[in-house]
Design a binder for these strands. Sequence first.
DNA 1: TAGGCCATCTGGTCCT
DNA 2: AGGACCAGATGGCCTA
Length: 337
Amino acid sequence: MLTLPFDESVVMPESQMCRKFSRESEDQKQIKKPESFSKQIVLRGKNIKRATGEDTEKEEEEEDREEEDENGLPRRRGLRKKKTTKIRVERVKFRRQEANARERNRMHGLNDALDSLRKVVPCYSKTQKLSKIETLRLAKNYIWALSEILRIGKRPDLLTFVQNLCKGLSQPTTNLVAGCLQLNARSFLMGQTGESAHHTRSPYSSFYPPYHSPELSTPPGHGTLDNSKSMKPYNYCSAYESFYESTSPECASPQFEGPLSPPPINYNGIFSLKQEDALDYGKNYNYGMHYCAVPPRGPLGQSSMFRLPTESHFPYDLHLRSQSLTMQDELNAVFHN
DNA sequence: TAGGCCATCTGGTCCT
DNA sequence: AGGACCAGATGGCCTA
């Protein structure tokens, strides 16, 4: 929840403004666009220099000049302690207000950066924003998970991937991420605690060997939450269908309406953060599509949710071009069978 | 109503 | 001196 754009009239009402620090009429125009803040600050800064740096000092000097000691003689200049004059107090107040404005602006910039980050982590919703701390945690896990995929050169199964994404995240965020990725959160969590004994096969196991990744361990800093090793493979027949078919209301993620920005992806084999490039590719899919390019299988495969585009991409969209082509060929072979 | 999250204010510290 | 950065305090809003 970002605050309203900085409105000087609110934060610094004219009544509070010292007349000596008043701005030129040009600067008093209310600028409502957030991006104008910095300009406004800059402009104001110039005026501060002008106002406080020249005028006020002269006036303070004049005031000081008038000061006299107890004998009625003028005070000597030098190490004399500065008297807290009305002007100085007002000046301190004014500088405090300026510092507040800068701080506010700085925090807005920080929030903008966090918003940008929210859009590239694999769970973005305009209506249900991740908190700051959860955004950072998820981003860390995401980077870690992607780098592990690159390092190992293999993809983990979807569940492992999501589990790694969710390590250290709160329950609501875990649900959110699982929802974004079209997973059933309850079953996902059961998988996390190793209770899903009925899970026997990976969703990919119909055409890829089950992927057990001893190397794909826990993101740093989440040792106690490392359940990936105890996670059971995923039951294709029961769990997969219930998770991915979206027949259950639990599977639906109505709160994720609106276009979802794709995460940093490998588009046509080129890893890129450019969202525009991937727009067409991703606009018909959500993250569930992005991260679980499970091959269609019979009637299930006909469901629109899993229908890949003609130029489909590999799960997670993350691999080298050569790998991409090879694996994509395999996928295409499966799709066309 | 408690707790979480957030924006803002504030004073301190460091750097230029 | 002034700005950037940081952390603590505070109050508002929202939700379980």
